[in-house]
């Protein structure tokens, strides 16, 4: 089943790349179909694993990366339905594939925490919301990159490879903003559930662990972005840069902190 999911994601990424270069509708359609197929297989695998063990498979790097790929897939399919920006698959499919392949590369180690940790409802809510939020913010980063490419083409009057292939600035900006609102909401929920869970386990909301601090920083970046947009009308280029920066910090929070700093999340990304 794992290999089928991987092959679906691979086929989708290849089809989207062909679409990027040749602009043939059938490549895009098959890319979308393969992606959907991959997502279905992936979902089934996750459900089966959860039923078998009784908890969400997130207890090592192998499984967390897998869940990240799944979250990217889910968010992409949602955005694709809503915004119909076909070209976004060029970013999302390889991203899901990358996360999935990386997951397959790291060994599936046995869980290190007592089982009660994984079966707790707050733990489940925390992990799911955080991952969906991060996937949505990954999409926002992608939309930001595409926005910058397109805006540069129009501003510099150099209509090259991307100008023809990318949708309008308005659409990219709109999709980026939707992703950020969705991602930020999920991230907020994720942090709140995390705090509650911490209170439950360690009897304190916050322990100034590096993971917590960096999560706070990423959250603040997105809070600033949304605030500036609502109040000051910050759109376009600056918003795109901030979305990219925010995601870089978020990635560091997700992996960098676990690898380079000590803290109470390390065990979930051990490899």
């Amino acid at each position: 089943m794992d290999i089928v999911t991987g092959l679906f994601y691979l086929a989708s990424a290849v089809a989207y790349m062909l679409y990027l270069f040749f602009q043939k509708e059938r490549f895009q359609e098959s890319g979308y179909l393969f992606f959907g197929g991959g997502f279905l297989c992936h979902t089934l695998t996750l459900i089966m694993a959860s039923i078998r063990t009784g908890y969400l498979p997130v207890h090592n790097l192998h499984e967390t990366l897998g869940l990240a790929a799944w979250a990217v897939a889910l968010v992409f399919l949602f955005l694709r339905q809503r915004y119909r920006i076909k070209i976004m698959g060029v970013y999302a499919a390889p991203l899901a594939l990358l996360a999935y392949v990386a997951a397959m590369q790291v060994p599936d180690l046995p869980p290190t925490q007592p089982e009660a940790v994984y079966t707790n409802f707050w733990f489940f809510a925390h992990v799911i919301t955080i991952f969906l939020g991060e996937a949505a913010l990954a999409m926002a980063c992608g939309a930001g990159i595409l926005y910058l490419l397109q805006e540069n083409a129009i501003k510099e009057k150099k209509r090259g490879f991307f100008y023809r292939r990318l949708p309008s600035l308005e659409q990219l900006d709109g999709m980026g903003y939707t992703s950020i609102v969705v991602g930020f909401s999920a991230l907020t929920l994720g942090l709140v559930t995390g705090l509650l869970y911490s209170k439950l386990i360690w009897h304190r909301f916050i322990s100034w662990d590096p993971k917590e601090v960096w999560s706070g920083i990423s959250w603040l970046i997105y809070a600033v972005l949304i605030h500036e947009r609502l109040v000051g009308g910050m759109r376009g280029r600056k918003a795109a840069w901030l979305a990219i920066t925010g995601f870089a910090v978020l990635l560091f929070t997700l992996f960098g902190v676990n690898f380079f700093m000590d803290g109470h999340h390390g065990e979930f990304t051990q490899f």
Binding site: Q23, Q150, I154, Y163, R164, P167, S168, L169, E170, Q171
Partner: peptide, 24 residues
């Protein structure tokens, strides 16, 4: 083919650009 993709008059070119900025 991309034969109908691109604008070849001043006013069409302006519209094409406007659509790349505003979409709709």
């Amino acid at each position: 083919t991309g034969i109908g993709d691109s604008a070849v008059s001043i006013s069409y070119a302006a519209i094409e650009l406007a659509r790349k900025i505003f979409g709709d």
